[in-house]
């Protein structure tokens, strides 16, 4: 019954080689980052034996590099480690907030942005925030290195675009434009410890006059995957993000939502609230871009 195995490679090459070797031998492998979703699922949903490959000892998965080209965020960086980086929060406050919203302080000590993305839950908090920030997945595998936009990485409930032998090494976020900022909001019934009922991530860039020149809006928990909502972004671009524009974006998000009713909320409720969150997140992003709270 001890047909589980555990390996913790210490370099990218070693990890790629290990995964290739296991694949060759038809051994099922499971990548472990923070484990906060994976361990629960392994004990409740899918108990079948496998090799657990802990990627946390690979330097590239644990580094946070903020430079002129943007941010490279290692896939296994824990939420608490990201939250501690004020320089990152100054530029991507919405993404840091999204990571910070996942679970309790205890979960924050383990759960990673990369893991949250790979888990591919429709309600994953970081996913809309990543999409709003045009984040790109950096993937290592037997065929080498490839990149894929986050909105294309999640392909279904609990399903991602990784091929056998591949794993997510890092996320790359483009450099922020001047006078730009992001925001992420989710709705939960309590103040903590819940899964999002609906969520919205917004990034806006403004010109010197406060007119929105670029925007991305992504919504979560209202469809099988997080959705990029170009109609909501279009409602914001060219405006000063006034009440009417934000309301139009809210309506676009509600229209784009394809929610279900379940134990966490009704279809009607989710559709309505995702609009409220879009409006509120747009206002926060605008105020941040205008140089208010960063």
């Amino acid at each position: 019954m001890d047909s589980f195995a555990f390996q913790a490679p210490t370099s990218l090459d070693a990890a790629v080689a290990l995964l290739a070797e296991q694949r060759q031998a038809s051994v099922r492998t499971q990548i472990l980052a923070g484990g906060t979703d994976m361990i629960v699922q392994m004990r409740s949903v899918d108990r079948a034996p496998r090799m657990i490959v802990d990627i946390k000892r690979i330097p590239e998965t644990r580094s946070i590099q903020l430079g002129e080209d943007g941010l490279i965020l290692g896939s296994a960086v824990a939420g608490a480690e990201l939250s501690a980086r004020d320089d990152v929060a100054a530029i991507y406050p919405g993404l840091v907030e999204a990571a910070d919203l996942i679970g309790s302080t205890q979960i924050q000590g383990r759960a990673s942005v990369g893991g949250n993305l790979c888990n591919a839950s429709p309600a994953g908090d970081t996913i809309p925030a990543l999409i709003a920030n045009s984040a790109i997945c950096q993937i290592a595998g037997p065929g080498g290195w490839r990149e894929l936009a986050v909105e294309d990485f999640v392909v279904g409930v609990g399903r991602n675009a990784l091929e056998p032998g591949e794993f997510l090494v890092a996320l790359r976020l483009p450099a922020a434009q001047p006078r730009s900022a992001d925001a992420y909001l989710r709705f939960i019934p309590r103040t903590e410890m819940d899964i999002a009922v609906a969520s919205a991530g917004v990034r806006v860039a403004l010109d010197e006059n406060g007119v929105c020149t670029a925007a991305r809006v992504a919504i979560g928990a209202v469809a099988v995957t997080a959705l990029l909502v170009p109609e909501a972004a279009e409602a914001l671009i060219g405006t000063r993000l006034d009440d009417a524009a934000c309301a139009a974006a809210a309506a676009a998000s509600s229209a784009a939502a394809r929610p279900i009713s379940d134990k966490r909320g009704t279809e009607t409720y989710r559709r309505q609230v995702v609009g409220v969150l879009t409006r509120r997140a747009a206002v926060i992003a605008r105020d941040r871009a205008l140089g208010g709270q960063a």
Binding site: R190, T191, E192, I195, R264
Partner: peptide, 9 residues
């Protein structure tokens, strides 16, 4: 997770 007893916050 989904049987939501009050938390401290």
């Amino acid at each position: 997770l989904d049987y939501r007893i009050p938390v401290a916050s």
